[in-house]
């Protein structure tokens, strides 16, 4: 992982962390990226705390140091505690997470696998907890989180050591 940024931001100070990052160098896409992140948190068919659990699983798998340290305010307001966030670690199957949360993590792991894929047991677990619309919504959220975190890692400049947990307002990463 490169500690040196491979691209630097446009030098703007709009207050939006995405627009002011290197992604701001591409005006054709940055507004869509910001709008998508906002829409995922506001319009998804599952709760913000469930989204955060899935986002943190992605952050762990991609090993995005910043993504791992972030907690979205909307997820905390929805009731996600740090104790529950810690349960997203490997071995979550035996944790106190709910059946629905575990099914969401199974979907996340299926998506994040190398290669991606859903086996028969996972399909049964996922469809037993979520409607087709909720599965589509979760996958859109996963795609958003995965694209963002891998973009951050690829651009470089990521700290090597874990950062303290920091709460982030959705307002600085959405439209």
């Amino acid at each position: 992982m490169s500690a040196k940024p491979r691209a630097t931001g446009p030098g703007t100070q709009t207050g939006n962390v995405i627009r002011d990052s290197a992604m701001g160098l591409v005006p054709e896409t940055v507004s869509h990226i910001i709008a998508l992140n906002g829409s995922v948190w506001r319009d998804s068919l599952v709760t913000p705390s469930l989204l955060e659990i899935v986002r943190l699983r992605n952050a762990r798998t991609v090993n995005c140091v910043i993504c791992r340290s972030v907690r979205y305010d909307v997820a905390r307001q929805d009731g996600l505690t740090e104790d529950r966030a810690d349960m997203v670690a490997d071995g979550y199957e035996q944790s106190a997470l709910t059946t629905r949360e575990k099914a969401a993590l199974t979907l996340a792991d299926s998506y994040l696998g190398f290669p991606a894929g859903v086996n028969a047991d996972a399909a049964k677990q996922i469809t037993g907890e979520f409607s087709e619309a909720e599965i589509a919504s979760l996958l859109v959220a996963l795609m958003n989180f995965n694209i963002s975190s891998r973009t951050a890692v690829s651009i470089g400049g990521m700290p090597e050591n874990p950062l303290p947990i920091m709460e982030v307002s959705l307002a600085i990463a959405a439209d």
Binding site: A7, P115, A116, M143
Partner: peptide, 21 residues
């Protein structure tokens, strides 16, 4: 470079999702 990274992310995410579905 940034655009390519974003595009690769979208392409890979869509391939992964299509496989899952």
């Amino acid at each position: 470079l940034v655009l390519l990274i974003e595009a690769l992310g979208c392409i890979d995410a869509r391939i992964r999702t299509a496989r899952c579905l």
